[in-house]
């Protein structure tokens, strides 16, 4: 078995999204895992990206304003009238 070329930090930070997306080749995934096991700095970088994703997800607000809801009820009523 040949050893895979090492993945340096500068490459890690560009591959990390493909890693999170499960889009790396088997070899590159192995290189990334090997690097992650050896490099606390990149492990920290990955954690920061995960924190970033979590913060972004918190921006999701699920309210529809009453005005908009009212207007959409009108849209629905118009459609139902068109249909019958």
């Amino acid at each position: 078995m040949t050893t895979l070329p090492e993945m340096p930090c500068a490459e890690f930070v560009e591959r990390v999204t493909d890693h999170l997306e499960g889009a790396l080749s088997i070899e590159d995934e192995q290189r990334l895992q090997d690097h992650l096991a050896a490099c606390a700095k990149c492990a920290h970088y990955l954690q920061q990206l995960r924190d970033t994703l979590e913060l972004t997800g918190e921006l999701r607000e699920d309210d529809v304003t009453p005005e908009m809801r009212g207007e959409l009820r009108d849209v629905f009523a118009r459609w139902r009238a068109e249909r019958s």
Partner: peptide, 28 residues
Amino acid sequence: FTAVDPERFLPADHDRWPHHWAAPPRRW
């Protein structure tokens, strides 16, 4: 595009750690 400013990594000709962090991610 680079995800991180290239200045934050050691140069390609570094004798031990080419392309490794010179200025690692700072703790939030």
